[in-house]
Design a protein around this nucleic acid. Sequence first.
DNA 1: CTTTTATGAATGAAGG
DNA 2: CCTTCATTCATAAAAG
Lengths: 202, 202
Amino acid sequence: MEWEKQQPEELNDRGGGGGGGFVKVMTDEQMEVLRKQIAAYAAICEQLVDLHKSLSSQNDFAGVRFGNIYSDPLVTSGAHKITGRQRWTPTPMQLQILERIFNQGTHSVGRPKVQELTAELLQHGQISETNVYNWFQNRRARSKRKQQAAANNGESETEMEAESAHEKAKPDYLQTPHILSSRNEHLTFQNPQASSAIHSVD
Amino acid sequence: MEWEKQQPEELNDRGGGGGGGFVKVMTDEQMEVLRKQIAAYAAICEQLVDLHKSLSSQNDFAGVRFGNIYSDPLVTSGAHKITGRQRWTPTPMQLQILERIFNQGTHSVGRPKVQELTAELLQHGQISETNVYNWFQNRRARSKRKQQAAANNGESETEMEAESAHEKAKPDYLQTPHILSSRNEHLTFQNPQASSAIHSVD
DNA sequence: CTTTTATGAATGAAGG
DNA sequence: CCTTCATTCATAAAAG
């Protein structure tokens, strides 16, 4: 199928650069489902590649006829990166409102509160309840995390959180898992058979 | 599936301007077909993996270790199975099976069902009954949240009180067959039986 | 343009 | 069942 050409990037048409009209041909949800499915497919293929590597490394006549699959970028360079999803970016006004509420002590919002808040924030830009929900969740987590990190880093355990039920208090930044691989190009769905590799241009 | 009530949302509507409408060009049915086809590919890959595993175990080669021979951080960016993982991560196949069952309408599983399912899923990777139980629990909750969120901006839709596992029939006006059919003599995701599913593209 | 950082989102698990 | 937490992933934005 070729719903391809119109990349969702067009939604982020803000930098002034390209511009131009756009047509979205798939909803985010559809995109997401497909993305997951393909990622699953790709993940298994990775296993296959590993197996072939192992087999051929000790037995090169093992009958590996798949030739250059190792060089297939889809397989070799982490395939679960399919096409991008656009994520919500709060407008300054929205952020201000959210921060204010958070700083007022409302660190967790109930379901009704979220709806109310969402309605208000909608006056200042597109937003959904999920966005609000996620925002508070992330805000809370990040807040907590920074406290822990600060306690470990700049403090010589004068008073560790005695009630801390978790032993997790370790400097996360020391083992930063930031293995952000090279800037992933936007892959598009491609047929294992069809050879037309479609990807967005830089 | 649940995305019948996709929300027309514009992300990053920061300046207040921009935006634009878009239409849904794939029906849920079409999506489902695609999903199944992709799943079929995944299944084939899975079988191949198993096949090679058994083949390699037959011939007890001296060096069949799937361990990390110098795991190149650039290459193994996507998968870091070296470090012990604290929480269960479903394999693609397991996910596939779980999703399938959930989408068949089985949203809650009894204990016997859980046991049965766990046994089956064990064929495709490590898993425990608790994992299965939690998965359904989370899946349900997530599903519900989805419909709540959708209720906010999807009010023009028909009533979406119950999130059934079965897709609602969509009005045909949402289809845009000319895009799908015009450029599309050949489906991207084709017959799973094609044994040439695995070879390098391009 | 490439690399790094900040943060929105996804999800397994725990608590109540 | 519902909410919350912890962790991880992906990506927009910033830095180089």
